[in-house]
Write a protein that binds this DNA or RNA. Structure first.
Lengths: 136, 136
DNA sequence: ATACCTGCAAATGTTTTGCAATGAT
DNA sequence: ATCATTGCAAAACATTTGCAGGTAT
């Protein structure tokens, strides 16, 4: 993100580097809390506000995307060179599975066109029980 | 909702009746704030907590459904005898259009089956500009 | 009479913001 | 030297909860 940072007069700091590095080293859909914990295990003096601020920058830069699942917390996932995709979310073990489906996207475009809508982003989430959680 | 209320020892009160009546008389996807305002224009002494509590009851009774769009507020819509449907949301004028698409639902089921997932509910939201807001 | 309900205010949980001190260029 | 950034604490939100008093059955 250094180019993006330089272009708008932002500064590279130890904290930002650490947060960004931690974020991209981790996998999955991290809540700010989870990320903060990982970050603080490397430098306990980093504050939550800095993590919030840094993730907002990453998100504005298009390098991370914010997701709002139904648990009331914002989660971020890496967005570098990734296709758009949607999510299956297990309501029992909270596992998140990603999927892509070209046909669904096409049908969404069709629906939007039909309503004269210009879609900029969409969200498709399927909530339920994953294979492992169905037997209890 | 009188039957549902009686069945579980809940009580019919003036406030609940007023909130429920206001909710079903209004249309669209009301936030608690919006509903509270309408309710208070009929009885200014009704508190926000009562609206929250009542909408939770309606929701548990299956008469209203809670929606969480990306604006950080819970919105409720009437759910009596309605099909499942999804939403187109204008990010400029905040208009919300509903749609149903059988093919998309089928494809979702296929995706879920493919992952061994048992889906209980899903959410499909298309964000963008509605016809009116595209010209600015 | 006995629960249940209400309104208020206080508590909660998540995210944002003001500010003085610190740090990058 | 400038101006962005940090950490902290306080503020801002949306929502929930405790409680004393009020109300439906």
């Amino acid at each position: 993100m250094s180019r993006w940072i330089a272009e708008r007069g932002l500064k590279a700091t130890r904290q930002r580097d650490l947060i960004v590095d931690t974020f991209f080293s981790a996998s999955g859909h991290l809540s700010v809390d989870e990320l903060l914990a990982k970050v603080q295990s490397r430098d306990e003096n980093i504050g939550a506000a800095t993590v919030y601020r840094t993730m907002k920058i990453l998100s504005d830069a298009g390098l991370a995307s914010a997701r709002h699942f139904d648990d009331g917390q914002t989660r971020y996932e890496a967005a570098i060179g990734r296709h758009h995709h949607d999510h299956l979310i297990c309501t029992s073990c909270h596992q998140i599975i990603e999927f892509e489906n070209e046909r669904i996207e096409e049908l969404q475009d069709m629906v939007a066109r039909h309503h004269g809508f210009q879609v900029t982003r969409h969200k498709l989430e399927l909530y339920g029980l994953c294979k492992d959680c169905q037997g209890r």
